[in-house]
Design a protein around this nucleic acid. Sequence first.
DNA 1: GATGAATGAGCGTTCATTCAT
DNA 2: GATGAATGAACGCTCATTCAT
Lengths: 204, 204, 204, 204
Amino acid sequence: MVRSERKEREFNTRRAEILEQAEKIFAAKGFHDVTMAEIASASGFSIGSLYQFFKGKEHLYTTMISEKIDLMYDKINQEVQSAKDITGKIASLIDAHLHFVENNADFCRIFLRGENEALSKIMTSIRQKLINDYYQHLSFIEKILKSGLKSGLLRSLPPREMAGALSHLIRAASVDWLLVPSKEPLSSKRAFILDIFLHGAKKA
Amino acid sequence: MVRSERKEREFNTRRAEILEQAEKIFAAKGFHDVTMAEIASASGFSIGSLYQFFKGKEHLYTTMISEKIDLMYDKINQEVQSAKDITGKIASLIDAHLHFVENNADFCRIFLRGENEALSKIMTSIRQKLINDYYQHLSFIEKILKSGLKSGLLRSLPPREMAGALSHLIRAASVDWLLVPSKEPLSSKRAFILDIFLHGAKKA
Amino acid sequence: MVRSERKEREFNTRRAEILEQAEKIFAAKGFHDVTMAEIASASGFSIGSLYQFFKGKEHLYTTMISEKIDLMYDKINQEVQSAKDITGKIASLIDAHLHFVENNADFCRIFLRGENEALSKIMTSIRQKLINDYYQHLSFIEKILKSGLKSGLLRSLPPREMAGALSHLIRAASVDWLLVPSKEPLSSKRAFILDIFLHGAKKA
Amino acid sequence: MVRSERKEREFNTRRAEILEQAEKIFAAKGFHDVTMAEIASASGFSIGSLYQFFKGKEHLYTTMISEKIDLMYDKINQEVQSAKDITGKIASLIDAHLHFVENNADFCRIFLRGENEALSKIMTSIRQKLINDYYQHLSFIEKILKSGLKSGLLRSLPPREMAGALSHLIRAASVDWLLVPSKEPLSSKRAFILDIFLHGAKKA
DNA sequence: GATGAATGAGCGTTCATTCAT
DNA sequence: GATGAATGAACGCTCATTCAT
């Protein structure tokens, strides 16, 4: 039905507006210090309306996190897919991740703000999803590195742990950039990350 | 006065008992989902008594975090100090960090639990301390790496960023170990971290 | 908008109901010995609702006092205005005051209950208002007495102090009546007050 | 026994010290905003010791009020007794009262601080005593005025109400002086009070 | 469907009083 | 007797969620 289609489109638009505002506010103050009234007011809806889109505050919060994280991994995967060779894929991976952080600094800061707590009770519901997503992402990286092993590009190290290492080198740069205001774009760190991951710190 | 000495010893013992229990509970549930009554009950004190040791819930929480973090860095620095050469110092650094995480898994999980929020309002008071501590630690690592640069052991990469990279490689292993139950001790990852940091992933 | 008008009317009605009940309870027990739960229950609202009308317990208390006091002075001034000559104005002043006390005995007893304390910390916010109101009232009386001086009705005494004297003669009668249950209406004291104020106690 | 006599003397001295400090603190902050710890610290005793002298906070408060009020009435009565004629007695009454207020401004301000509340629950225990004391004092004044009626000095007005009027004329001056800082001593108001009480405001 | 007033459970904190030392 | 640490009941206030309009 055309009517219901438009309705659904509208529904999704409104839902997205709420999520967008919620992201800003949650990023700024953390889960507990944000009230539903605040989100309602910022997104231009009534408190009651919020409950037509989300079961409750927690659902709103976890949905927001969940969808944004999905977006991040989607973007990264997409970028990597379009690269040709192994080195290019690794570089794309780093690049896409750094760009996402750069463009979504506030959101990412949610995961920094003390780097703690909310996954506690509130997040029980998406905790596993986040972990699974992360492991899936690691597996995704692992697959790339495995083909790098096969092709003889990489040293024979455990691919899973290499994936973890690469992932956290990216994190290292991201966290630093988020914590201290820097004029250089985060993406300028790509070369260094790629270099230290591939060659290590030791002189040949 | 002997009497006041004993009193002070007792005071410190009780204070430590509270902190110990609080650590467990906060680690399990996060700041907001823990009540003072819960901590009181777990530590065998009355609610009122808690307030003789700490100004409030926030003070108790931040004190607990702060003192434990100090302990961690102290232990690491100590271990590193006792190592002779550069490679030994780097190895000690990795080792001490991994051991601390291994022996204080619950505490460390505080910083994982969603890796977010608490530094928000609650932690304004120690946020800067945590950041400062981290940067001081990075500087500490940097100093070691600089002497490695001088001695010709390391490639000529920016030492600060190398420090960040090393620090996050350690984190990578710690986070993985904390997130998934593993039978192998975390410390078994030392060799890999050292290896990938020094030689990188690329075949020579 | 009609709708918002009705809403506002309802809001004011409810607010007035709360204030009315609060007045009774505060009058009976004093600020500190009244709980918000008590007021909520007495006025038929939930605890939370109280906070939609007043910022907190203190605000509720001071608002109640403040509005009632305004009402008292308004009534008195109105009555006095409508009197023709000086003697009539003085008589009206006494009369209006006595009637207010008679009709608002519980409220007035708030200012008797030990005649103390609350203006302390709690009332810092309206303390000055009460004092200002009182002094404004004294000035109002003073103006009447001054015209009495001009017209030759009154002896040449300092008008400010005469105003204080008259005000406290009224208080004297009110306090007595509030403290001891009396069958005679308070207003029956008007003649005596007027008499002793105008002629004093001494035989001519 | 001499020993017990000294003990008792010491007991009374300490008790008086506590009451003296308590008076200052209660006068400054009101009953509810003063803690036993505060009184203990100010009077140089331990919290526990306070309970050897007084059954509790309320007892301490009411005792302090009660004894000070007794002192006031004693002083006034004494002064009045030593005056010869009726006019002198009335003048002494006014004088003694004004001097007491002047010399015990902080204490008297207890009864001003909003002129309310504390007689609420806390004071139930001495409320009646205060009222009785006041009425006894009124009777005392009444007796003087009655002899003034008999002697033909005073007009034939109800002596009880005249007593109330006189009492509140004194109050009027006291309250004003307590509320607004004045350079003139309160006792300078004696003449005016006596004048308006005896002659009234009206030109003969 | 949309609204936002109403609800009330739940928590941090205070402080008079007790009692072991 | 003197101490002051320990106790825990009690209260103000918040805010997610509901539901009458």
